[in-house]
Design a binder for these strands. Sequence first.
DNA 1: CTGAAAGCGCTTACAG
DNA 2: CTGAAAGCGCTTACAG
Lengths: 353, 353
Amino acid sequence: MDETATKPEVSIKPEVSIKEVARVAGVSIATVSRCLNDPESVREPTRDKVTKAIVETGYSPNVLAQSFRRGKTNVIMVVLPSVGDPFFTDVLKGIRTVARANGYAIMINETQFNTLAADEIGAMMVSRWADGMVLLASLSPYGTEVLSARSHRAIPIVVGCETISPELARFPSVHIDNAAAAREATDYLISMGHKRVGFVSGEATSLLTLDRERGYRAAMKAAKLGIESGWVVQGNMNIPGAIKATRSLVNHKRRPTAIFCANDEMAMGAYHEIKSAGLKVPEDISVVGFDDTRYAEVMDPPLTTIRQPAEEIGERTLYRLCKAIEGKSEPGDTLEIVPHQLIVRRSVAKPRR
Amino acid sequence: MDETATKPEVSIKPEVSIKEVARVAGVSIATVSRCLNDPESVREPTRDKVTKAIVETGYSPNVLAQSFRRGKTNVIMVVLPSVGDPFFTDVLKGIRTVARANGYAIMINETQFNTLAADEIGAMMVSRWADGMVLLASLSPYGTEVLSARSHRAIPIVVGCETISPELARFPSVHIDNAAAAREATDYLISMGHKRVGFVSGEATSLLTLDRERGYRAAMKAAKLGIESGWVVQGNMNIPGAIKATRSLVNHKRRPTAIFCANDEMAMGAYHEIKSAGLKVPEDISVVGFDDTRYAEVMDPPLTTIRQPAEEIGERTLYRLCKAIEGKSEPGDTLEIVPHQLIVRRSVAKPRR
DNA sequence: CTGAAAGCGCTTACAG
DNA sequence: CTGAAAGCGCTTACAG
């Protein structure tokens, strides 16, 4: 980096374009462009002149002009409910790996269950800001409409994690079988002797949550166990929401002996509220979570939960998106179900009698 | 939305540009452009024709062309160590609020303490992908070099949270006084009677961590307390790192009665390891964290920690960046220190004697 | 109030 | 192997 020695601070050139490089090198702008994009096609001596001129001028291409000209941004937009969710952190890791390998930058967009954000996302899809989109969140009806109606403008989209709504069914998607996983978790609770199982769920706007609830209900039904009114509590999908929901469960006249939470984050809230009520996990109330985030293992007691292969979901999602962007996606296999797994730790015990 | 009734699915127009709209409306492209950007300057009947044509054609502007032409992307890049960190989730919230209010979209980029990523970031700064950048992470030496050397190309940058390295001192920055906060936390521990205080720190690449360590050492020194070799443990700034670091503290021949963790996430790891060793928080070992993330309150016991005004940091950072982008930043006040606060919960007790 | 035209910085056939 | 030229889709003085 010996060009640093030339005190580059001094020259506050507002702009150095390909033209300037061409001038300095004594070649045409086409040649400069070729040196950058297809060096092999330029003779060595010419290339050397250009390289030198690039260094001398401190040129770097205007990415905006390139994207515009090429009609490609090499940016992939990822839409998710919340970047703070540790589960999505892992999904993002997988996404990032494949993105980087394929030369894409990642643009992250949170919906935060917010309609305004959904509108922006709709606008983005229609614009050419990104080459493709990974959809990890439920869309508002508006977003869904945009996706369906203006499909002729929209960039390729792959859906991840989230169960798909009928309108979006034609988009490829990668997720676990949420209903089956929830059923498995509930079955486990039942197999441990629980007959009163509560379900702490998130916003009903999320199909994924609905699927989990469906699995829970199916398990209860199959075991011929009734679900009392008030055992299924819908809260905000965060800690305060879970605390509130758990409180109503703890105070229920027929208190559940076990609580199945729609995700690990809510399980953290549930733990807190159970303990605050002077009860113990799992002795008084067993808890099962969903996601197996990095916190599950250090919770006290360690949380029994459903593991989603988060990183793999991210990788698969992005892999398929890349294919779609390259126009190489094979039609047909739109839906890809990845395996989940019940991770048994120490948050479930047999109920006291 | 009655245009939905016209079955837009049918027409798979690959591209509809401003030209097409102009043709349909029977006006020039300049007029179409004006209708979009400065409607007042167009006569009502003309505007109506254009509006109708836009609806009819399903036109939406090519954002890439606009950005290129205007030399402005309305995108702000946020660089942070990890989106998964709950502290940054809150900072991002503040950033997002101000960004939205000012018409900017947010592009998030994780460094993950990774040099490759830092290179990409350097490239981004030099490109015109974003109008400005918020830097919430320590830069690699390379990144720092890029920032310093090619400053004449670089977009406006504001640093947040992170203490600034000498090379970056000319950039505006917003953060708490990390050393003072760490000293306050340690002083609190000392005031509770602790004489053996350990420090679980993160990677030494982070100036911020170093500042916190400095505050801890200053407090110990002021209280005339020695720091045994092995009481300051440097781990990875995550849960496994904290577990490992805490283990060595728990097994230390002169075991600390209190542990100060460089952030709340590490405190979670510390809790886990302390409990795994059959010890209790705070009876056997007191713990103090840093950040006051949303988990601090639901930890068992609730964590005593330093609160950073995360959202405010995000807001202030972005506010100043917007000013800088608009060319309105007043020089001079580059450094902005925001207040921190010690939040006393129940993870600290007097040491057993 | 509206249009014709220049130009933003690139890339890429098309000639030579 | 290299250059002149067209053109990507916009915006914006400049005329009229």
